[in-house]
Design a protein around this nucleic acid. Structure first.
Lengths: 230, 230
DNA sequence: ACCTGAACACCGTTCAAGT
DNA sequence: ACCTGAACACCGTTCAAGT
């Protein structure tokens, strides 16, 4: 049972420096909070100026704590990551390996559906991110346990790999984006329909041989590293 | 057998004006060509300045022919749209209704995989676009014939609707984007793996009841119109 | 009628000046 | 140590001036 990591202790160490001053710590918190709500509502293209204004600080302060807009975005994703880790733990604690796998994918999709920033962020960059590299490896191992168990139980097609899950989640993200539950009106849960189709697609019953084999974790991170270094 | 529409006769009528002057027509063509290659390689975030430079014209000329960057992008998508129409015609001409449907989805995915602009463009905006509204309706009717036939033949799950196809294509786009065949290195066709999973997901064999019903065409366009009008 | 490029309003990011 | 906001380099778009 791996518990969600604590990302900001009271001392908040960057690289390897001392704790932040009290006011700095509060400002950092405010920026992070403002960014979370703004990114969740407006997505990646929200302006840092608006976030700074909403946080009641100058833009310089924002960039002091988060050197780049992308860093700030990554920081806002942490709570979603923790939710996913919890979901995986819950899944591994269940006997029903299919229900567990479906639960993980559902939780991921729910986060994407309610947080436009998270939706925009899913993609190769998340694997390219050096700051996430280690934790990604840990998560991948958990996912591998989940998928292996489901395969052993015969509840998923036997050519399914843990490395497929990020891509399937990305696919679901594409559908969710098009479902357009971005803002106003009745926020639809149409994405559940396409999650259902994808889930049926990884079941063993109607499985047809796939034309391409799954990527290895090395290929996954290698591809992304080269993509981010262009 | 509906043949792909001709989008630019020698007379090129905008709104309802006269033919373009000879030099203007050539400039328009150059811009469109430059935009096609640049968007295909770099995606939406390519700059209009670079396109204008590559076309050998001033930015003002570019905006004279295409009032907005988005209009220019839409214009570059036309050849892909025509390809899809051809694919649907081919599919309807075949006896094998499953192969036909799979062929259409494959062609769409191939376009997305080789054209980053097309990949970035798929989404609700394509249905919101007033300029595409009519032709979208026509295409939807063709897709409906395709899906109905496949349902009647029992080769797809019987809760599949034609309106699902754009969303499934969007989903595939999400996976393709994450596959990251954007630039350098061996351009992977990993997306074919996830197309395979989605195809298995719409087969009748392992089909499980879906939690949400398909959107109607009206809902589809209505949602998008409200999204674009914000 | 059409083309051009300087000008404008915006964006993310930096940095000298303040406390 | 930290904060601030004017300044910078970029973007999409406009428009007065040219042919």
């Amino acid at each position: 049972m791996s518990s969600p990591a604590v990302h900001s202790g009271p001392g908040e160490h960057d690289h390897e420096s001392r704790p932040l001053r009290a006011d700095a710590r509060r400002n950092r918190e405010r920026v992070l909070e403002a960014a979370s709500t703004v990114f969740a509502e407006e997505g990646i293209e929200a302006s840092v100026a608006e976030i700074a204004r909403r946080a009641g600080v100058g833009v310089g302060t924002l960039f002091r704590h988060f050197p780049t807009k992308h860093d700030l975005l990554l920081a806002t994703l942490e709570v979603g990551f923790d939710e996913i880790v919890v979901a995986v733990d819950e899944a591994l604690a269940t006997d029903d390996s299919w229900a567990g796998l479906a639960h993980v994918l559902t939780v991921c999709a729910e986060i994407q559906a309610r947080d436009r920033g998270f939706l925009d962020a899913v993609g190769p960059e998340l694997f390219a991110e050096p700051s996430l590299q280690l934790r990604n490896a840990e998560r991948m191992e958990l996912l591998t346990r989940l998928v292996e168990r489901a395969r052993a139980d015969g509840v998923v097609r036997d050519d399914l790999r843990a490395e497929d899950l990020p891509f399937l989640l990305s696919a679901l993200g594409g559908a969710t984006r098009t479902c357009g539950n971005t803002q106003q009106a009745a926020p639809t849960d149409l994405w559940r329909r396409y999650l259902g189709i994808i889930l049926d697609g990884i079941r063993p019953s109607g499985a047809t041989p796939l034309p391409v084999s799954a990527p290895t974790l090395e290929q996954l991170t290698a591809r992304c590293r080269s993509a981010s270094g262009s």
